[in-house]
Design a protein around this nucleic acid. Structure first.
Lengths: 207, 207, 207, 207
DNA sequence: GATGAATGAGCGTTCATTCAT
DNA sequence: AATGAATGAACGCTCATTCAT
């Protein structure tokens, strides 16, 4: 296993992308220079432009790479034969684990793209809303079969669900919520319980 | 009383702030110049710096002005003698009406401050989290008296509630959700129903 | 007459244009930096961009300013009641005096615009060819009245005439021809004699 | 003899030079990248630097190659036993045919070198003026034997002659003059007639 | 208060050149 | 010879901020 290549075949493009995640996450897209990314990656300034046409393209690449994975994950989850609540738990779990695994990347995606309505958010509107639509697609059949309230439109419910999760991520990003593994795990169940079961205690539940 | 001033006593500082809302909303804080604000306000470039020390101070002022009003509104709502669900409805109503009344301002506050974890969001962390805390303060007694599930921490529930609302605002900002008055009104009830009552249909509800 | 303003009301825009002439003339448009122009003008870097949108706009401005003057001069000369040869002498005189008066400006116009087929020359093709056309317009009636050979098209003749003059300017620019006042004056007569009378000696002329 | 090499023995250096002519001609020396030349030549970026020390050296090579040929042509023409007018016709013919045969090359030489007083023109001043001198060397004896006017210095006349021709080339380059074979042929005669015989009609000529 | 010319640091991007393979 | 990734200095342009009037 240690018999890898003498000289590790580093993919400089990948190195630059990974460095950009750290730099964008630390300083923010607008508050860092391309040279910061190059320095962090340990490559020459110009190499960044050898692989990317602009600073923006780096961010776009990071976003699209990760967002596509999430969209596929949602689709894959939808195809499973599970109750809605379990599907939503899986989605919440995927997103939260994504953050746990690479908080900087998720921070960049959320702060610089998803929530940046004036700049990159607008540019990737289609991709972003595709996530809401796929979640809504999970909810819709459940409304039909009576397991979800028919009075709440699926698109609306999807927004609430996703919004709650993103708010939790924001809480972790901002340091407002504790970031232990237990908390992450607990959050998965709580957010689903809050959204699906509601905050209010029910007579049956209290019984 | 109709004999107001010959020359309307315009508050140039106010004019600049209002212009900044429109410009920041339209172009984004980072994609506009101070001169754009001055032009929009119809004042000379330098006058902006007569009233504000920096471009950032304009944004900070806009945020703090409005956020304070919201904090006071939450507090005032909490002091009313109402069931928790009605209090949450009032808060959702206040925020949604704020957006309806001045969408640019709310867009700026949310996009440029509340969700900008790397820049202004970090700077105003205290103020921002105060909102969550005040909402949590509403939820906590309700958990104690049994009207809300005790298994979901109030802080957590507050985040979910606020996150759902902010996501709706984002949907309106992005043009993903319809922005008619009916929709705004409907959303107030739906978001509370979704969060308090939950998405899942209950036997009692279906009966 | 010395009682002008205490502080001379300098037109910084003009100062920058004049400095650009010297810098472009000395180093060439492509081999100088905008900071060189600013330094030469004794103004801050940014002021150049306060008055001009780009480095290119400075050159365009210089060219158009001067070229327009030349076009008007040609037109004015044409309107005089003079034999063709005298009109051509006046044009040669105007151009040569222009060079004598401000060699850097003419150098810039010729080297960077008029003869730069790939860049600015192409951009100002209309203006440049207008000069040829106006000269041709002077020649054409003279062909009709028999004072010029009818076998040589006016446009063609205009090109030869202008080309000969510009070549002389190039000779002065390059330092290939002497640049004394006497030489300039002599050149005016010689170029007209060469083009109108021809290089070949005629029996009559030798008689 | 039809059994040429299986693999044509392409001279990559030549391929690069020919590609450079096309690229410099199309985009201009300053507006193209070395990679454009490499791409046009179909060779690797680095190979350009294997054969040439710099981008400038490519242009210098192109200029010197061609200019030397022209100088030799002028010398050869001068050695013929012909009237001066016929010698000038041969020179005009050689230059015009050069343009007709390879317009890009002539365009590059004229636009980027001959008329670029600030950069390459200055560097090749000696070579360039050698052309004027050789033409002047043809004219001088003709002044002595009375076939050319003695009042016009040979150097001056040479400049006018060369200037007229170069102006015609410029007209073709700029698309101001038609570029049919007939026009090229006609131009040879016209330019000589204009310069040697003069534009003015003579009593003898009109008789 | 009000104006807008003036300042200059900063940054994104380009691209000629080098060099390891 | 041939490749193209890697380098980094250079430069055009932006724009927040200052300041003289």
């Amino acid at each position: 296993m240690a018999t890898a290549a003498r000289t590790a075949p580093v993919d400089k493009r990948r190195v630059i992308l990974d460095a950009a995640v750290r730099v964008f996450g630390r300083q923010g897209f607008h508050h860092c220079r391309v040279s910061d990314v190059a320095d962090e990656a340990g490559v020459a300034y110009g190499l960044v432009y050898h692989y990317f046409n602009s600073k923006e393209e780096i961010l776009n690449t990071l976003f699209l790479e990760r967002w596509e994975i999430m969209l596929e994950a949602i689709t894959e989850i939808d195809e499973r034969d599970l109750p809605v609540r379990d599907k939503l738990y899986s989605i919440a779990g995927f997103i939260i684990d994504s953050y746990r695994h690479d908080p900087d990347l998720m921070k960049v995606i959320i702060v610089e793209v998803t929530r940046a309505a004036n700049s990159f958010g607008a540019a990737h509107l289609d991709k972003i809303s595709e996530a809401y639509e796929r979640i809504a697609a999970i909810l819709e059949p459940a409304r039909a079969d009576g397991s979800l309230k028919s009075g709440i439109p699926a698109e609306f419910a999807a927004m609430c669900f996703y919004g709650a999760i993103e708010q939790l991520l924001t809480g972790w990003i901002f340091g407002l919520l504790p970031t232990t593994d237990e908390e992450f795990e607990r959050a998965k169940g709580l957010v689903v319980e809050a959204i699906c079961g509601g905050l209010e205690s029910t007579p049956a539940a209290s019984a």
